[in-house]
Every structure is written in structure tokens, then in C-alpha cells.
Design a protein around this nucleic acid. Structure first.
Length: 746
DNA sequence: CCAGCGCTAACGGGGTGAAC
DNA sequence: GTTCACCCCGTTAGCGCTGG
């Protein structure tokens, strides 16, 4: 049984002395010099082609310079270059992941996305590295066409024709040729064909390529490459050829309109294929030496020409000065030149009546020139779309990677990504977080891409996202929006996957019915968009926010307790439970409570039930109950304590903007003493919590409960997700006013 | 049937040196 | 001194590839 023949026909002259996975760190680093750009440019302009004996630079050397240019000018400088990056395979991976060139690679390699620089020689670098990788890859150096011919010539047996995947008639025709097939030669032609395309595209000098001009035609490496091998390039190639070239020129010359009909008539008349019709037509017209004018006129009439025109054509076939072919190629050259000029195709290479060029994604060509000559547009190859999935290890700037772009302008129409189902009351807001009394429910289409997924999990997550977006927006997302999302993930996360393949796979789910929607719940939200750099940073901020809110809440509770007691003139032992287990969390509140209780009752611990009355400050001082029993000294001390309690009550009332009881007038001197005492206990920083924040420091925009269900598309809560990162330069206090208002109305 | 180029085997001319 | 085998080297025919 015939096995796939993977014999390589790579001759020494084109062989590379390193593979795609060879680590070239030392070589590359030695080539990185301050004048790398000039060096790369100089080397490019001296590229060796198929001309024997000239001293151009071989592609394998040029590639090393291109790699040095890549790491010097294209690779972002703020990323660490790992040793494993110094290979052709890795660099191609980076170029494929973030392709800033207009070209399209046929084979995509799995690589991390980096913000590459669009350096001045990026396109040159891209083409050289893609080409070099291709020459070293499994896709180059063998082909079924070569294998089949070679096997036949060596053994005299034909390999199974039904397994042949290309033009079988063409192969059969080649079997009949008696010559020896040199696979090495064919592959060399293939090699120089690709290099010549690159040289044309980049407008490099062709001094090291064999190219001769004769009979209005240009004989270059393109004309030497077998037709079967021409679509096999590292990049997308397009061919534009003149439709029915010679009949078109005859039409133009003799003012008739047959064109394609000529070949059609011959095909019908003789029952032959189009390619054979072409040969027959030219065979006859080239036979001026052997055939009489009458014979040729008869033939032309059978093609569909009128007698008058047929007669005029024989003037060309029987021209003693110039052969018929040159009459045609003169037109051919003019037509090609016009086509190239009109479409401004500087990078195109001529192949007789056609031009070949590396595809740059620009399609609207002027395919008809000089009114009558029309050109065909044919893509010789298309990208091979294969799935791949892996994780890269590049450093990510943020702890959480959102699957959906945060910037609304990424989408043509605004997309709702998140929807909050109910609105609980807020407890408070600090450090960019907002906490709620209870958990609230929400639906989100987003997910964290900075987590480890298997390929299947990842696809399922994306399907859920598509479904949820459809549910939230009441419409299916478009193909473009899907591509934007996939590109966003590829760009910002460590997940390496084929955007082309995944996109193509997911397209069929765009219009699928909505799946079960997952409802999540959470008791906090974020008020800012800027991302955290690490997970611990998020947790620290989250905990800090919780702490600040709890502290404020504790202090407010104390203030309120004191205030109401004072208002009701029932000032006795204060009982207040604080949130927070950690010693430092509510040290200030506990100290203050202890101090107040001491001032009010004279005890540092809660007195026994029976002494309750005697321990109330107001009972004894304000109402002067039993005051006569006290000594003068005791009276003075009691009055002093009243002043101190008054001070605290005033301070806390101002702090939380409570309505101040009229008779309270703080003594500034005593107040200073009290504050100094507390400062000694808890420190300067903590004391600040007792004072209202400067109004200017408060952020102008503060989201409120109305943000939730009113205008969904503009609400900040529908743009960001929990944990969606945020960063604030300076810690700030967020006062409690809003919370206080909520408490009142609740 | 025409054109081009590249490659290779075959051919043929000229020089050389051994054998007669 | 003549002859002939042999080598070197340049030319050429034939076949490969392309285009119509």
C-alpha cells in the first residue's frame, strides 16, 4: 500500500542550517546594534536570488538580521524577552497573534499577543520571517505532484491516481513526458518564486535574480515555477490575468467583438477542453510558415470570425518581418502595464499575460482597462484555519481580564453587558466600593479570562456570553461584534487561541435560542473602572473599603446614640456594639465609648443595676438631684465632666451633620485636652476620622441607587463587573451623608 | 504552432602523451 | 614521425518549466 511520501527535495543551495525551533539567542543578540535598521535595510537590498555566482545575502542570513530587527524595533521594550522567544517559531507566533501588516499568513502559529510596534520596516520583517519559517516548515520541499512524477520516473509505476488531490489531467499529461524529473530543481524554482514575490512586493533591487526581457515579455522566477506549486506560499497571493488575451487583442485590432466566443466555438466544434482550445487556436495562428492563407482563413471562420476579419488576420500570421506571437505580446505588455499603472500595483510581478502579487486585502481593482480588456481576479490560496489552544506566560497588567471590551466604542451599537435585577439599600461607599445591606441579583455576560480554562470550558463560556448578550440586548450580536470580543480576549489575556477558527465555529450560535440565564448575586459594587494589577491588590482594597465603611458605621452608631440620649436628656451608661473583630478596626470607637461612659457615670466598667440611677450624670448634675450632698470639689469635677461630654456630643453631631441640641456649647480648651488624650491613644491618622472630610476632596460624581434600573445603557453599574478592577491613587474618606439619608428614609 | 530560460547528455574540436 | 586513446572544454539538441 502506498504511504504518503514525505521525501524532501531541498538542495544544499537553498537549505537552512537552523530549524524553526532552533534557539538563535546568541546570534540575534550579536546582531542587535544601534544601526540595526540600516543594516536590515542594506541586507534586504542585497538579497540573493537565483542568479548563480553573485554575492548576495542568502535568505537564511537575512532572516537572522530580520529577527534582530524584530527584537530591537518591533517587540515591546517593557516586556521581558524570555530565552524561548529567540526562535523563528516563536517570532512567527507573535507576528500571527498581532499582525500589523496588511498581508495574510496561510498557516497560523500559536503565540502570545504582544503590543508590537508598527516599526518602519515591519512589513519587511513580517515577510522575511514568514518566508523563512515556511521554507523550514513541513509545508515546503515536497508535494504530491513532485512525488507522483518522481515515483513514476524511478519505478515506471503510477501511484494511485484516485488519491491524487490536484489536477489529474495535468498529471497524466506530465507522465507522458519522457524526461527525468528533478525534484530538487522544482523545489528550487518554487523557493525562488516565493522570494521573487517578496522582492517585488517590497520593491527591492532584483540584481541577484535572473530576469530577461525579450519579445515584449519578462522571463523571471515566476515564469519558471510549475503551476501546481504556485499557490503554496507562506502568504495569500492573488493573480490577475487577461481574460481571453489574444482573441481580445484581435478584436481590438480589427474592430470586432468575439473574445471568449472564439474558444467556446472551438470547444463546441472539436469537443475539446478550454485549455486544448487555447493551444489549438495558437497552434494554427503560429503556423504561418506551414499553412497557407486559405487554410488559416478557413480555420478562423470556424472560430466565428467574418471573412473580412479573417483575411486581415492573415496579414499578421504571414508577416515576413515579425512573427505572429510578437504582434500579440506587444499588446500583452501594453495591457499589463496599463493595468499595473491604473491600479497602482507597484508590488506586482509579471507572468506573461498575468500579474501575481501578495494580497494586501485591497480588492476593488479596476478590472477593465482601455474599455475592452478585462482581467480576472483569482486568489491562489486561502488561510488554513486550524484550531489551537494554549496559555502563554506573559505578564498581564491587570488581575482580572474582562472578556468584553470595556470601551463602548468597540461596538457599533451600545451593548448591555450587565443587568441588576433588584436594588437593595446601600450601607456605604468607600475606596471605590459600594456595599449593600443585602445581596442583590444581577445577570452578566462577562467572565474573567485570567483563569485556567480547558478548551471546552472556554468555548462553553463564550457560548454563554453570546446567549446572555442576546438576552440582555434583545438582539443577536453581529459577526463583527463577536470578532471584536474574541480579539479583545486574545489581546488582553494569556489565552492563545485561533480567532479565525473560534469565530467561525461560534458564528452558528449567534442566532441560537437563549440558554438558561445564570443569575449571580453580590453585596457590593464598584464605582470606578481602573483595574487592579494583582489579585491581592483587589482584596486589599476590598477589605480596606469594608473596614472604612464599618468604621464609619460604628462611629455613626455611637454619634447617634449619644445624640439621641442627649436630646432625650436620658444620658446614662451607653451600650453600643461595634462591627469588626480586629483590634485596630474599632479602637477609636471603643476608646471613645469607654471615655464617654466614664465621663457620664464615673465608672470605667458598667455599674451594677442598683447603682444605675446614682450613676447617671444628668440626674446628678443637670437636675441637681442630691447635689447638695456633694462637696464643692466634687461639684467642680462633675461640671468638668459635663463640659467634656458636651464637647464630644458637639463634635460627633457636626461630624455626621446631626441637628445640634441648642444648649450644647463646646469649650475649646477642654476639647483640646480631650482630643490630645485620644490622639495619644490612637494616633494622628485615626483622629482625622472624627472630622468631616473637606468637601473638595469628595468626588463630584457619586453613583446612587437610581443608577440601577433607570437608564441601563449609560449606567456605570451596567458597564463594569464586580471585581472589575479599579485603582485609586490616594485613599480617601467617603463621608456618610448619603448613608445617613438612606437610614432616615428607610 | 510560437516564444523564453535552465539543465544535461551528447557531440566535436583541439591538445597531449603513450605506443608503435 | 605517426597514430590513437584520452581528457578538457565549449557548443548544441532535446527536454523540462511557463504563457497563449
Amino acid at each position: 500500500m502506498y504511504k504518503a511520501n514525505k521525501r524532501l527535495y531541498i538542495s544544499n543551495s537553498i537549505r537552512f542550517d537552523y530549524s524553526n525551533t532552533c534557539n538563535l539567542k546568541y546570534t540575534i543578540q550579536n546582531l542587535i546594534t544601534p544601526d540595526i535598521k540600516e543594516n536590515f535595510n542594506k541586507t534586504l537590498n542585497n538579497i540573493q536570488g537565483d542568479k548563480y555566482g553573485t554575492k548576495g545575502i542568502h535568505i537564511k542570513e537575512l532572516t537572522k538580521v530580520a529577527l534582530a530587527y524584530f527584537f530591537s524595533e518591533v517587540f515591546p521594550e517593557n516586556y521581558h524577552i524570555k530565552d524561548s522567544y529567540y526562535t523563528l517559531e516563536a517570532v512567527k507566533g507573535f507576528l500571527d497573534a498581532n499582525n500589523l501588516s496588511p498581508y495574510t499568513a496561510i498557516h497560523e502559529v500559536c503565540g502570545a499577543w504582544f503590543p508590537l510596534h508598527d516599526a518602519s520596516l515591519f512589513n519587511e520583517c513580517w515577510l522575511i520571517i514568514q518566508t523563512a519559517w515556511f521554507f523550514n516548515s513541513e509545508h515546503f520541499g515536497h508535494h504530491q505532484y513532485i512525488d507522483y512524477l518522481n515515483y513514476y520516473k524511478e519505478t515506471g509505476e503510477k501511484l494511485p491516481i484516485d488519491l491524487y488531490r490536484y489536477d489529474k489531467a495535468y498529471l497524466e499529461k506530465k507522465y507522458n513526458d519522457k524526461s527525468k524529473v528533478n525534484g530538487f530543481k522544482l523545489v528550487e524554482q518554487w523557493h525562488y518564486y516565493i522570494l521573487y514575490l517578496v522582492v517585488c512586493e517590497l520593491e527591492l533591487p532584483k540584481t541577484h535574480f535572473k530576469s530577461t526581457y525579450k519579445g515584449y515579455r519578462d522571463y523571471n522566477p515566476l515564469t519558471k515555477c510549475p503551476r501546481q506549486l504556485r499557490p503554496l506560499t507562506p502568504f495569500k497571493v492573488v493573480e490577475c490575468d487577461i481574460k481571453s488575451a489574444f482573441p481580445t487583442f484581435l478584436d481590438y485590432l480589427f474592430n470586432c467583438n468575439l473574445k471568449d466566443e472564439v474558444y467556446n466555438n472551438l470547444m463546441r466544434w472539436h469537443g475539446i477542453k478550454r485549455s486544448d482550445a487555447k493551444i489549438l487556436f495558437n497552434k494554427k495562428l503560429n503556423s504561418g510558415k506551414y499553412l497557407s492563407k486559405i487554410e488559416i482563413i478557413d480555420f478562423l471562420i470556424s472560430c466565428g470570425y467574418s471573412k473580412r476579419v479573417a483575411n486581415q488576420i492573415t496579414k499578421l500570421t504571414h508577416d515576413s518581418n515579425t512573427i505572429f506571437l510578437y504582434h500579440m505580446t506587444e499588446f500583452e505588455e501594453a495591457a499589463i502595464n496599463d493595468f499595473v499603472r491604473e491600479n497602482n500595483m507597484v508590488g506586482a510581478g509579471r507572468l506573461h499575460d498575468a500579474v501575481l502579487f501578495i494580497d494586501k486585502g485591497i480588492k476593488p481593482f479596476n478590472l477593465k482597462i482601455d474599455n475592452d480588456i478585462s482581467f480576472g481576479y483569482k486568489e491562489l490560496n486561502r488561510p488554513v484555519i486550524k484550531p489551537f489552544f494554549a496559555y502563554s506566560s506573559k505578564h498581564l497588567p491587570y488581575a482580572r481580564v474582562s472578556a468584553l471590551p470595556t470601551n463602548q466604542s468597540e461596538f457599533t451599537k451600545p451593548l448591555i453587558k450587565r443587568y441588576v435585577l433588584n436594588k437593595p439599600n446601600a450601607i456605604g461607599e468607600a475606596n471605590g466600593f459600594k456595599f449593600y445591606k443585602s445581596k442583590y441579583d444581577y445577570i452578566t455576560a462577562d467572565f474573567d479570562c485570567n483563569k485556567a480554562y480547558t478548551y471546552n470550558m472556554f468555548i462553553e463560556r463564550l457560548k454563554t456570553t453570546i446567549s446572555t448578550l442576546k438576552y440582555l440586548n434583545n438582539r443577536s450580536i453581529t459577526k463583527q461584534e463577536l470578532t471584536r470580543i474574541l480579539n479583545h480576549i486574545r489581546r488582553n489575556s494569556n489565552i492563545c487561541f485561533s480567532v479565525r477558527h473560534t469565530g467561525r465555529f461560534l458564528v452558528k450560535y449567534l442566532n441560537a435560542p437563549v440558554q438558561d440565564i445564570e443569575i449571580k448575586s453580590c453585596d457590593f459594587a464598584l464605582t470606578e473602572l481602573k483595574p487592579f494589577k494583582t489579585k491581592i491588590e483587589f482584596l486589599n482594597a476590598y477589605n480596606e473599603a469594608k473596614k472604612q465603611i464599618n468604621q464609619n458605621r460604628n462611629l455613626y452608631k455611637l454619634a447617634e446614640l449619644l445624640h439621641t440620649s442627649y436630646t432625650n436628656k436620658r444620658l446614662s451608661w451607653l451600650v453600643c456594639e461595634f462591627i469588626g473583630k480586629h483590634e485596630t478596626t474599632n479602637k477609636l470607637e471603643r476608646l471613645l465609648l469607654g471615655r464617654l461612659n466614664y465621663l457620664i457615670t464615673g465608672y470605667s466598667r458598667k455599674p451594677r443595676q442598683k447603682n444605675k440611677l446614682s450613676c447617671t450624670l444628668f440626674n446628678r448634675v443637670l437636675y441637681k438631684e442630691g447635689a447638695s450632698k456633694l462637696s464643692k470639689k466634687e461639684c467642680k469635677q462633675l461640671k468638668d465632666r459635663v463640659v467634656r461630654v458636651k464637647f464630644w456630643t458637639h463634635l460627633l453631631s457636626v461630624r455626621f451633620e446631626l441637628e445640634i441640641v441648642p444648649e450644647i456649647k463646646p469649650n475649646k480648651q477642654i476639647g483640646k485636652q480631650e482630643l490630645n488624650w485620644l490622639k495619644k491613644q490612637v494616633g494622628e491618622k485615626e483622629i482625622k476620622r472624627l472630622h468631616l472630610v473637606n468637601k473638595d476632596e469628595v468626588k463630584p460624581y457619586t453613583p446612587n441607587v437610581n443608577d440601577f434600573c433607570t437608564d441601563m445603557s449609560n449606567s456605570i453599574f451596567n458597564q463594569i463587573d464586580d471585581e472589575e478592577a479599579y485603582y485609586k491613587g490616594e485613599q480617601f474618606w467617603y463621608e456618610y451623608k448619603r448613608f445617613h439619608e438612606k437610614q432616615k428614609t428607610a
